[in-house]
Amino acid sequence: SDQPDVPDPLLDQAANWPKNSDDGQSAAKPSIRVIGFGPNEFVERQAVDVADLVEMRHTFPTIWIDIVQFGDAKLISEIGEVFELHRLALEDAVNTHQRPKVEEYDDHLFLVALMLDTGGSLETEQVAFFVGSGYVITFQERSGDCFENVRSRIRKATGRIRTAGSDYTAYALLDAIIDSYFPALERVGDELEALENRVIGSPEPGNISPLHNMKRKLQLLRRAIWPHREVFNRLLRDEHPLIASENRPFLRDCYDHVAQLMDIVETYREMASGLVDVHLSSISMKLNEVMKVLTIEATIFIPLSFIASVYGMNFDRDRSPWNMPELGWYLGYPFALILMCAAAAGLIWYIWKKGWLR
């Protein structure tokens, strides 16, 4: 091969590879599972060294090498050298902060996808693919994936996966990643429906925090799903000898699934934004109701306060007959009370007539 040597650059960068343990120690040694298969044959085993991979590559029409964790830079470098993987692509495969993408090389394709965590959370992990003639190599950050259905199809020879080549195997794996987003979105939809009932049924200030968390979840999903659209679009648009024409319709199906996911996410985002508006409107209406009650009470007591303040003035009646003659009336006090009650009753009747108490 006329490519630059792989081992030394990767060994130099090994110190910067991702940490997989909580205590910050170096990543664990890679776990390598190899599945070799053809129309009438199938072998699945754990590989311990590169020689096993070379043997299976020469034995089976198609092999799938699944590498989990990147703790052994020398081993990964040897794998890259044996399969003549491009150095820059191999560096991207083990540095797990890549955006979903596809890169074309002379004898292989390099793809990056984001897979949802299998534990039910919305965290994603990077999965890198090398697709060449007769082989698919996947690099995963940690154990646990959504590929078990693909493994089962290979074991049972279900469909055309054993006969359609490495490009179809890569499609099946990518399709499994994309399809794993649908159950996650279904759970998000259930949460959104529960939030909708909560916001409409009980508009409390505490609802705003779950709504913002929901919007954040949907934003994370959108950022994870959206770049896959360009990946499949490029695979469909650009001709490459590794992708057979009969397998292109399957890639188009993946593209349609990504578009469907984006539509669902956008719909949920609009619903979440609408719920925020409904929540704020409900809180505002609730506050307006409180303010209306207080305003009505204040309106009723304003004339009562006025009457009481008038009769509370200390003008000397001996100085002038015009100084509050009502204070000398025999029924002055009952008159003041009746006047207050009449004023209050009149205001209540007026407010009721306007419909402000209904």
Rank of each mutant, 00 (worst) to 15 (best):
residue 131 V to S: 06
residue 332 G to C: 08
residue 34 V to C: 13
residue 188 V to L: 09
residue 158 T to S: 14
residue 149 N to F: 04
residue 34 V to W: 09
residue 54 V to P: 02
residue 240 H to Y: 13
residue 243 I to M: 13
residue 207 N to S: 04
residue 101 K to D: 09
residue 111 L to I: 14
residue 146 C to V: 15
residue 52 D to G: 08
residue 195 L to H: 03
residue 281 S to P: 10
residue 64 W to F: 12
residue 173 L to I: 08
residue 4 P to E: 01
residue 140 Q to I: 10
residue 50 V to C: 07
residue 341 C to Q: 09
residue 226 W to F: 15
residue 197 N to S: 07
residue 312 G to A: 10
residue 264 I to V: 07
residue 345 A to M: 13
residue 314 N to R: 09
residue 141 E to R: 04
residue 19 K to F: 02
residue 247 N to E: 12
residue 300 I to C: 13
residue 227 P to K: 01
residue 176 A to M: 06
residue 201 G to V: 12
residue 99 R to M: 14
residue 286 K to P: 03
residue 143 S to D: 12
residue 273 S to I: 00
residue 102 V to W: 02
residue 164 A to Q: 12
residue 154 I to M: 14
residue 302 I to Y: 06
residue 176 A to S: 11
residue 158 T to L: 11
residue 263 D to P: 08
residue 106 D to E: 15
residue 293 V to G: 11
residue 348 I to E: 09
residue 85 L to Y: 02
residue 87 R to F: 00
residue 233 N to C: 08
residue 156 K to E: 13
residue 165 G to R: 10
residue 310 V to Q: 13
residue 346 G to M: 11
residue 92 D to Y: 00
residue 54 V to D: 12
residue 60 F to E: 02
residue 170 A to L: 05
residue 173 L to V: 06
residue 32 I to R: 01
residue 30 P to T: 05
residue 341 C to H: 06
residue 18 P to V: 13
residue 238 D to E: 13
residue 145 D to S: 03
residue 309 S to T: 09
residue 238 D to W: 05
residue 122 L to I: 14
residue 308 A to D: 10
residue 213 N to L: 03
residue 118 T to V: 15
residue 160 R to K: 14
residue 354 K to T: 04
residue 207 N to K: 01
residue 79 I to C: 07
residue 61 P to A: 14
residue 192 L to E: 00
residue 71 G to Q: 05
